[in-house]
Design a binder for these strands. Sequence first.
DNA 1: ACCGGCATGTTGACAATGTCTACATACAGG
DNA 2: CCTGTATGTAGACATTGTCAACATGCCGGT
Lengths: 207, 207
Amino acid sequence: MPVKKIVDVMKEKQNRPYHHGDLRNAILDTAMEMMLEEDGWNFTLREVARRAGVSHSAPYKHFPDKMSLLGELALIGFDRAYERIRAAMEEPATFRAKFLRVAKVYLQFAHDHPALYRLMLGSGVVTEQTQGDPRAAATFELAVEMIEQGQREGAVRPHPVRGQAAACWAQLHGLTMLDLEGFLIPEKVGEKPVEAALNTLLEGLEE
Amino acid sequence: MPVKKIVDVMKEKQNRPYHHGDLRNAILDTAMEMMLEEDGWNFTLREVARRAGVSHSAPYKHFPDKMSLLGELALIGFDRAYERIRAAMEEPATFRAKFLRVAKVYLQFAHDHPALYRLMLGSGVVTEQTQGDPRAAATFELAVEMIEQGQREGAVRPHPVRGQAAACWAQLHGLTMLDLEGFLIPEKVGEKPVEAALNTLLEGLEE
DNA sequence: ACCGGCATGTTGACAATGTCTACATACAGG
DNA sequence: CCTGTATGTAGACATTGTCAACATGCCGGT
């Protein structure tokens, strides 16, 4: 017997409960979906409400305004990214192999949620909210861990760890953004720009 | 005898000419100004028109829609960035010194026009317009030049030039974005993250 | 020197949006 | 069981992007 999802029930004109029951999550999911569809966060709250099957001002019972919705979406993005990268770091490997695997996963994440990624790190909109939020900071600590282990193994030069981690993050973030925006055109940046750039950085990291 | 600027004349209620005469540029300037003020491109066309002293739909005679205005603004941004970096590359220096000077100028540019910089490279809005536009591509060629010269001097490893240039750009862009968004907090990324990151990359570039 | 076309501006209208206030419903705890 | 509070709804407001119809005046051909 098929179970009707609340989100579908709420779309019915008749016979639908006054209360949604899980609106907050429905809003987050719908918004996430629309960010994918429209490749940006220019979706309207009213359309989100429409899709969730509630009135146009219902979302305001869960988020004071659109910005705060975007802030929460960004934090969810950080959670997801963290989870993916943590998984990629789990099985042991040489520093180089681990670095490249993480890089791949990182780029893949951004490729899967381009708008979300831009919202998280390049919107200039959620700065205050994400500033120092542990959920946003956690991922960077994974990079620090990776470098530290690399140094312990003698694979990475003995420079300040957090500086090296910052270098990795910047490199990865820069590559990702340029990739997302379509600036990595072979005629301009060569055949395999990502590999080339990562390699260049690795040569600066490795002993 | 003081000369009245057209933009001011147009703001007068009375005695103002029917035609602005330089509206297109006035719009671009005003929009640029508002991007600075509001740190984003969420300004309204109507406010731009108001400030320029014209009716709310006058801008549509010069730009089909807001997106196309943003596209032009981004291209102007590329022009300005190119000019600054070209100037920074003029006087001769060692590869390392030149690289660091360019990096400084690059970061300064982004710091001076944060919203514009984000619009240029991280908006996901102007991709098609800027895609392959020579005005947008020109700056990258400067990086290629710099690397080529570095290789000729024997300061840079003999790897494919455009890949190395891509690495530089990615690193610089990543650092810039993280800086703009306020993610470079000392407790997280160490004391001088920019210097550290640039150094790490340099060690991967240099022979 | 005239005149007509075309680029440039203006006015008014439309559908949509974010957000507010007043009101409705029903769940949960005493 | 009953009431307060969390959650939804309905309607209103100012504002926006954009369009169409109309106004103005500069510029080139006669």
